[in-house]
Simulated assay, not measured.
Amino acid sequence: MHAVTLTGHLDEPLSRWLWLLKWLLAIPHFLVLVVLDIAFFFGTVVAGFAILFTGRYPRGLFDFNVGVIRWNWRVAFYTHSALATDRYPPFALRRTDYPADFDVVDTERLSRGLVLVKWWLLAIPHYLVLAVLAGGWLGGPLAVGYAAQGDDGRVTIAPVLAFVVFFAAVALLFTGTYPRGLFDFAMGINRWQYRVWVYAALMCDEYPPFRLDQGGDEPTTSTGVRDVAVPRP
């Protein structure tokens, strides 16, 4: 079981048209997240130095940064990354009963050496894949889907996730039903990128797998029982 737990449950029935307004309704969250994400960045820098000298991620910073990612995931689940619930996200860092949730096992010790390379060098292969799956820009043959070339010569990629969510929204508008296959695929992309986010933010040493673990819940073991790691006290 991966150290990162990302879940999302399709919260049906969904409004056929509310997704057209969710971007506007979520503006208060976007404004708050700008501030929180800046704090997250500086907290990660501080944590990086702490890991380098002590091998530990300060618990207070860890809990705060997990909360920031959790808040980002709820808003993304409500808006651009899934559109899978009409329930308005709570303004909270803590875990709630919202249909989208996120958590990370706080390991007791982290590698001092990896803190210098995992957020850029080791994560580069994932960044390249996620640029196509979840967003970003690359030139040449890696541009998939709809690509528009700007005046500066860069190719802006419309990521696969954007197409998946768009087609789900169109299906919802005309049929009132969110296609389950599209939801599971979107969850796989989201799960991949949030695992990489945690790794790049120095919160775990477990290298993210190159796979789409689809579905609303984390994958189970061969016995069907989740292998849940126990956080440190």
Rank of each mutant, 00 (worst) to 15 (best):
A158N: 14
Y194W: 14
V196F: 08
A84E: 01
R94T: 04
G188A: 08
L138G: 13
T79Q: 10
L83D: 11
R195L: 02
R87L: 02
A100G: 03
L173E: 02
G188D: 07
G140N: 10
Q149R: 15
S81C: 05
G153V: 03
A171W: 10
L121V: 13
R191K: 15
Q193T: 15
A200E: 13
L121Y: 08
F77V: 03
Y127V: 07
I189T: 04
A92N: 09
R109D: 07
S81N: 07
A201V: 03
Y98H: 11
W137T: 10
L93H: 03
L116V: 15
L202F: 09
A84P: 04
T107N: 08
L130K: 02
F77S: 02
R154I: 10
A100N: 06
S81Q: 14
L172Y: 06
G188R: 06
L128S: 12
P179W: 10
D184V: 03
P89A: 00
D184A: 09
E108N: 00
R95P: 00
W197S: 05
Y78W: 10
Y178F: 14
A147C: 12
D184S: 01
D184C: 09
A148N: 06
Y146N: 12
R95E: 12
A168L: 00
W119D: 11
L202I: 08
I157R: 01
T175N: 02
T177N: 14
D106I: 03
Y127S: 06
Y127F: 12
V155E: 11
W120Q: 04
A148S: 15
F77W: 00
V144Y: 11
F174T: 13
I124T: 10
P90E: 09
V196G: 13
L182K: 04
G135L: 01
M187L: 06
G139S: 12
G113I: 09
F77Y: 14
V129D: 10
W192G: 00
T175M: 06
G188I: 02
